[in-house]
Nucleic acid binder design. Structure first.
Lengths: 238, 238
DNA sequence: AGGTAGTGGGCAGCGCGACTATCCAAGGAA
DNA sequence: TTCCTTGGATAGTCGCGCTGCCCACTACCT
């Protein structure tokens, strides 16, 4: 198919596809002449993936490019390439590295040890987690962090087990790598939305059983919506 | 204190504080003369909150403004105001509303029913969830969605229960509202980071027990880092 | 009283990211 | 042949999040 068809199948404007081609997010078509190229189903797939990473996953175009490049080059060692794909998703936050951060960083290490996790010291999620915890501390949520952190960790552990099992069931390394990227990113969004729904339900349930006094109108709830994580969304003309 | 001190305490440049004041993210100081104002500890707190919402939570300045405005006006009905705070976090995605979306939307409703959740029909998280599921479908992950969705939902339910309990323990409505915002947003980031750590651990564990053949180097893993959700982060001069 | 640094207020500008529009020449399809 | 499409490139647009600059004024030091 040619670029116009590609545009029709994916619903994306031709200039945008050209832009992604230029940026290397999508491989070039197979040239049939100096100014003519053929695209395949693969390109349709890829474009959908790009859109998902950017719109739902909230990645920048540059980050998406890096991630996809890693997906495309599965080197020796399944886990190594999968890990690489994952690491590339991180835009490593710049640390403030103050006192609070260092303390949080220590807590993270303890947490990991406490749960018996085998995690490489250089996994950037350690730093990210430390930053989030430090932020919560600065906001005066220290006690609550302590109260729920291990609960969160146990939850994450359960989820991760399921996810990893599912991913290891994929037929080949390529689809594993792709699945890692998709599920890491969209899994965040999925979980976020579910959490908001569950929160509303929980708020409803807990307040109506705890005390049935009328000042609480059963209508509203603690839940919300939307993966706060600011995805870039624009799409003007479509 | 005056604006320079405010800047020193929070580590943010004076022009940025002015900008937030102008945008209404932070209430104006108490004027002592036509060009002089006093700021309080409250302002320090508030600025830290703003920074957390924007940097860690990934909200845009405009979104943060809306959220904070809702936190500031706790109307009658605890749950109502909390719900409002939560709903405002959503930047309701523009739907594509095609066939796949409609199907996913139906799945969401079924899921909610299946788990016995009491969720208002207009909760925007329904639509968000539907969109994520539709995206996963379009990416050919349909089978896997079915395999893990209820697992995710049960997980979210457990988490939500803990969170709501913690929030209801707060002394007053104001701190409840603030906690809702903080924990909804930072909870996403917290969970995302933990999930990545747990994934690396799970990948390590599952591959080394399942099969001990050497082509898998124990070093790398499925885990990654960083809350993919593109937080805006810049901070040039500090 | 005079000088200097700091303040509030406001608007303009900047740098970046992600497109989007336009142009062009070389091919192709009818 | 005639018109259309394509690839390729360059320039323009738009929104966002600051950042700078200017002004009038004030607080405080000397």
């Amino acid at each position: 198919m040619r670029i116009a068809e590609l545009s029709r199948y994916t619903g994306m404007p031709v200039p945008t596809i050209k832009y992604y081609l230029r940026e290397g997010l999508v491989p070039p078509g197979e040239r049939t002449s100096p100014n003519q190229a053929q695209y395949s189903e693969e390109h349709v797939r890829r474009l959908k993936l790009v859109r998902a990473l950017i719109d739902v996953g909230g990645l920048s175009v540059a980050a998406a490019k890096t991630v996809l490049a890693n997906v495309d080059t599965p080197d020796r060692g399944i886990l190594h390439s999968l890990g690489k794909a994952q690491y590339s998703i991180t835009v490593p936050r710049e640390h403030v590295e103050d006192e609070a951060w260092a303390a949080s960083r220590r807590d993270v290490d303890e947490l990991i040890g406490r749960h018996g996790w085998q995690v490489r010291p250089r996994n950037p999620a350690r730093g990210t987690l430390a930053e989030v915890i430090a932020t919560l501390r600065r906001l005066g949520q220290e006690d609550y962090v302590a109260a729920v952190l291990d609960d969160y960790a146990a939850t994450a552990e359960r989820l991760a087990e399921t996810e990893v099992r599912e991913i290891l069931r994929r037929p080949d390394v390529d689809s594993m790598a792709e699945a890692v990227v998709i599920w890491t990113l969209l899994g965040d969004a999925l979980l976020a939305a579910l959490r908001r729904l569950a929160q509303e339900a929980a708020a409803e349930r807990l307040t109506s059983t705890d005390q049935a006094d009328g000042h609480v109108t059963g209508a509203a709830a603690t839940a919300s919506s939307g993966p706060a994580p600011a995805s870039r969304r624009r799409r003007r003309s479509g």
